[in-house]
Nucleic acid binder design. Structure first.
Lengths: 196, 196
DNA sequence: TGTACATCAGTGAACGCGCGTTCACTGATGTAC
DNA sequence: TGTACATCAGTGAACGCGCGTTCACTGATGTAC
């Protein structure tokens, strides 16, 4: 064996992370194998030593994106006060920073349109990501006394995803800010997250 | 002059309508000039007699899509009872039929991700479409006594757009149905649209 | 310890295909006589 | 009214480019002696 056992795995992971960023900022169709490899400091020819196809890499990169998202939503479970946990997640999700950094944030608002058109494998992973996030929100909503925690978590997530998706797509910054603020106000009022 | 004066304009309109459908089902990057022309019963060579470029055609087709959407939301203003109008629009928007027919429905859930990545001209048109629809919902919400009609309309639209976008992207039909139902239940409860 | 060998991650040229765009040509039909 | 002509929407072959994929090759380094 030439390189250390971990060497290949590390390269692969680096490629996946670059891919995950590019997918979020350019969409799955917008990423080019050669571009992702170049960002990882490699040439495109080596790609197939790591992945069977571009499509297979995209499917795996979805996993990487949701791992990132999971990291951010960990705080929901780790914060003792569920109301404060929800408030801080909603604050983050509907923030200008989250809207403006497509390459870093939650994959749901950027990519639901693209994945609606893609293959079953990718859509299954996407569905698992949606469910995982919904379950975390549901736990917190249950803790503050929601009568249908999972259903309300699902509706809450839809509202945040839709608001960020629309806020990113409109050209006018005032309109965009208002879309985020309106969704934020609605959620804070509905779940009494104010001053939490 | 060879063909009647209207002949060319009619052809152009036919091409735009086919393009609007293809954009919604395949995304702007997924549409091919040759494919759209073939659907309109033409060969690809004639395309440039009608449009300067593929991009120019996409920009115009966005207008066509919002014209379609405007047609569907006309009912909100034309129905006498605002609560019934809202209920029927929410029913339509969160229906299985709307989820399953991407090529016909509202362009917001399918395309917000794509337009977040596109040029200013296209995003401006998109923003106008969002605002027009929000204003219609706001009028009805105002009529049923909402305290901040425009803000609540914006939050309501975000929730519907997010729910349809997610419902289209997940693979599992049970999960997908649940996402629509949860958003629907939330809106009906919040605005007392039950049995309207 | 030092040296030869084997491995295989990574290189870079090449191929094929799809697609946007161009262009010389066609032929249906409105107009002029 | 009928006929020749001019126009131009539409045709279809061709071109160039980007990109996914393949493949023969390289060279850094772990292992065996």
């Amino acid at each position: 064996m030439r390189y250390s056992i971990r060497h290949k795995a590390e390269t692969r992971q680096r490629v996946l992370e670059e891919a995950a960023q590019e997918i979020r900022s350019k969409g799955p169709d917008g990423v080019a194998v050669a571009g992702v490899m170049a960002r990882a400091g490699l040439t495109h020819g080596g790609f197939y030593a790591h992945f069977d196809s571009k499509e297979a890499m995209i499917a795996e990169a979805i996993g990487t994106m949701f791992d990132d998202a999971r990291g951010r939503s960990d705080a929901i479970e780790q914060t003792a006060d569920p109301r404060a946990a929800l408030r801080s997640y909603v604050d983050f999700y509907l923030s200008h920073a989250h809207r403006d950094r497509r390459d870093r944030g939650c994959p749901l608002p950027s990519l639901s349109g693209d994945f609606a058109r893609s293959g079953a494998a990718q859509r299954e992973r996407f569905g698992e990501g949606v469910e995982a996030l919904t379950a975390r929100l549901a736990k917190a909503l249950g803790a503050i006394g929601a009568s249908d925690p999972h259903g309300e978590a699902s509706a809450m997530l839809a509202q945040m995803v839709g608001a960020v998706a629309l806020a990113r797509a409109v050209a006018d910054p005032i309109q965009s800010d208002a879309i985020l603020a309106d969704a934020h106000a609605g959620l804070v009022r509905r779940y009494r997250l104010g001053d939490a």
